[in-house]
Amino acid sequence: MMEDAPALFIAIEQSNLGASIRQSSWAYPVANIGHIVSLVVFAGAVCVMDLRLAGAFAAMAPGPLIVRARTVAIIAFLGLLITGLTLFAAEASHIVLNPVFQIKLALIALGLVNVAVYEFALRARVAPMPAGMPMPATARATGILSLTIWIIVAALGRTIAYF
């Protein structure tokens, strides 16, 4: 199976970094736990942003709430990235061919595109809105779509080990 993987990913797995992660008694479990903890924080921040966009928490103005939650989400995403790359490096040639992992990466890309859609097309409208004002339909759709994407991403992440 390993021979089927692109050379780059075989090289990552066989690198000193890949080997040290596998051979350490703590690196892999720490990355594993770190990935889950980062996910929990990320999911919390994403829920706040997406539920606000979907129309919940209407008593709070969306702009300041989303800005603060976004900072937490970015830090947690970096944590997910670092721990995820650690887990990936240990088994790169197998994981890169895993169909669930491939779908997960595609959905992460879609989730980030959705962030860009908000930033460039919606933020100017949503951020200055006062508390209690109904959300535009596009903002609601973006929030629900985002929440759906990230929940599926989390579920797929857990599923990689089973395929």
Binding site: I21, R22, Q23, S24, S25, A27, P29, N32, A90, E91
Partner: peptide
């Protein structure tokens, strides 16, 4: 059952 040819004591 048989003799071990190679062994990797590694994670995961």
């Amino acid at each position: 059952s048989g003799p071990i040819q190679s062994s990797r004591y590694e994670n995961p």
